[in-house]
Design a protein around this nucleic acid. Structure first.
Lengths: 189, 189, 189, 189
DNA sequence: GATGAATGAGGGTTCATTCAT
DNA sequence: TATGAATGAACCCTCATTCAT
């Protein structure tokens, strides 16, 4: 029942946005009475929260799986996995993701949400520490933050607002290049 | 009067979001009767549109001014100006900008307004063409798109969701580094 | 509940007309919340429609009953029944009837509902055909239309705008006379 | 200016009904400022009243002219003139007339204004008195009232809701017949 | 637990009317 | 006198939430 409600919520949210998402309509679409909906969810906002959490979990699983998968070696291999993980996560239910994000960002500053983005932040930090020879940064915290933001925002844009005249595969490669270039880029200071 | 209404709109929008922004409250905050509000704006959505347009114009002016200003030479100098322009634009009214972004899709055509972002895209393309010796890309369209997205999204995040433990100046430098590294990064293909 | 709402609608409609009939006031008068009103009626106009339909049904029943009742024989007897039926129908809720007539055109198709008036028209036609010896008309369609209009409009006026110095009984008799005279009146053509 | 306003009122009234007739729109259509409108008419209802009066005057003139015109002799000739006068009056601006009828009751005393209809009533009374030989009624007041109502309501219906399959000329003749039949119809009492 | 009829605060919007210019 | 910007009460309607069954 909870699941039917969440599915209906997602459907209605996508079609009409949060403001246009009526709890009565959600209940009806879920084939459930409005009373039952309120037995499982205290209010309208909690539908979004639940949807958000569910989606975050799915994304986390997908990301973990890809990050742990075998693949290219070295820093570049890690970056490739990172970007692939981000793309997979964003491609999961892109439109839902977008709506959800609108009301409550997924990737807030790492300290805010200890869950997903904290894990990723730690993963990236470890990754940078494990390749001291090629990473040209002294401030690893800053480098990790930049890496995470670049990954997230470039992938986000690439998946949700893809430029119609550019090839998806080449965009992905370009994102990997950008991150790798940033990490290994020798600078003055 | 139009201005008072728009200011009040911005204030209420920031505090309560679009759904929670009552036209009556906006009028009251503007010190204007609800009737007067509707004499200048045909409906609630038009408040957002006007706010958006005004903001876009201000941003465009700011960006143009900074891009045309004198400054460092060479590709890096250009990138610095680009990032500075983006930061200035985003710092203008960051929270308003964010809300506007959030609500826009439901009220306007999904196509990014071609004006501003088109101009910038062209500017970046020209910039890349003018530095063929250091730009390590053959597909300039892709490089320009990446440059624009990196600038926009990294600056956006840095301004609107700044990590509390990192220095703004160093973040700006890191963004410049990232873009410059991407542009000059020698790759296999 | 539907009935309480309709009764309140009728009351308010009579007092203030359609334009001055506020749905909130109707709900309040019905002892029902405005939300409940809108659970049973999709909008304000539908209140009128429902009122109209209910009234039309009641009138139809009353008319049928009287037309089928035993009574005087011959054409005159039929005309008496016809006029009595019309008077009973108009006396049912005369003021409501009047308001309903007034507002209807804006909400319904301009064609008179075929149900009631069509039935009566047919009834009259048959009636004329059954008394060929006394009916002095060759064009029965025209005669039927005139009969119906005379009945309706004379009764309407007599009931809704009765002249204060004339006796209702004698008016009814005069209406019967007029119709009977028209039907049996020998003319040149 | 007054005239421009009244013409615009009539136009808007016909198009949108009284409820949908906005004083601002009327002023605009009249090419006059809303302030000026309120300089000549104290409120919205007075527009209707003025329109009504103007229309009544025109009708009165038309009716008087036709009633005084030469024509057929005898009672039947008078009835013909009466019906012609009524038809001319109703055909003047039928739709405006209809709208005016619809809204009037809310703005005027329920007693028919003594002006026009009083005059006609007197005219009919005199007419009946002048033909004692053919008029088969002892209660002339009742006969006059019936004559007036028959004329008005039959003509009203014939002009404003003409049956599509009947000839206007024959309808007019039938109305004359009906009235004449009623007046000369010999009855028991 | 499940239901869904009932609630009513509150929302966007209109328009008759006023009054300073 | 003519103007029209300004007013704000009031309207129709929605929808998150409750609670008796």
């Amino acid at each position: 029942m909870v699941d039917a409600i969440l599915q209906a919520s997602a459907r209605v949210l996508l079609k009409h946005g949060y403001a246009g998402m009526s709890t009565n309509v959600v209940a009806q679409q879920a084939g459930v009475s409005i009373g039952s909906l309120y037995q499982y969810f205290p209010n309208k906002a909690s539908l979004l929260t639940a949807l958000h959490n569910r989606h975050a979990e799915q994304m986390a699983q997908s990301i973990e799986a890809i990050l742990a998968a075998p693949g290219g070696h070295g820093l570049r291999g890690e970056v490739v996995r990172l970007v692939r993980a981000a793309m997979a996560a964003h491609e999961m239910e892109p439109e839902l993701h977008r709506q959800l994000e609108k009301e409550r960002p997924f990737f807030e500053s790492p300290t805010d949400e200890p869950g997903l983005s904290g894990d990723i932040h730690r993963h990236i930090l470890r990754l940078l520490q494990e390749h001291p020879d090629v990473v040209a940064h002294s401030d690893l915290a800053l480098a990790a933050w930049m890496t995470m933001r670049m990954t997230e925002s470039l992938v986000h844009t690439a998946v949700l607002h893809p430029p119609h005249d550019l090839d998806a595969v080449r965009i992905e490669a370009a994102i990997v290049d950008a991150i790798h270039a940033f990490l290994t880029y020798p600078r003055a200071g």
